[in-house]
Simulated assay, not measured.
Amino acid sequence: MADQSWQKSSFSGDTANCIYLAEASGDGIRIRESDAPGIIISTSLDVLRALLLGVKAGEFDHLTT
């Protein structure tokens, strides 16, 4: 895989628990976690957008309690 330009949220600061995003071909996006950088998942921008909107709306809060 070619070297990618990974970006993390400015909200992550210097913590070890970060999510990184990188552009993929077409309308894709790649996602990896800082403590497992070799594991990369790919999805579309539309699917990522739906996930983020659901998180912001609290649709997954029951999974963290």
Rank of each mutant, 00 (worst) to 15 (best):
M1A: 12
D3C: 00
D3K: 09
Q4N: 05
Q4V: 01
Q4H: 11
S5R: 12
W6T: 04
W6D: 03
Q7R: 15
K8W: 00
K8Y: 04
S9R: 01
S9M: 06
S10Q: 10
S10H: 07
G13A: 06
T15Q: 11
A16I: 10
N17A: 13
I19W: 03
Y20S: 12
Y20A: 13
A22W: 00
A22T: 02
A22L: 03
S25T: 14
S25A: 13
S25M: 09
G26Y: 03
G26D: 13
G26V: 01
D27W: 02
D27Y: 10
D27I: 04
D27L: 06
G28K: 07
R30N: 14
R32P: 03
R32F: 07
E33H: 15
E33P: 01
D35T: 14
D35H: 12
A36R: 13
G38Q: 10
G38N: 12
I40C: 08
I41D: 02
I41T: 15
S42T: 13
S44W: 02
L45D: 07
D46I: 06
V47Y: 01
R49M: 04
A50L: 07
A50D: 09
L53H: 11
L53G: 14
V55Q: 01
E59H: 10
E59I: 00
D61Q: 06
D61M: 03
D61W: 04
T64R: 12
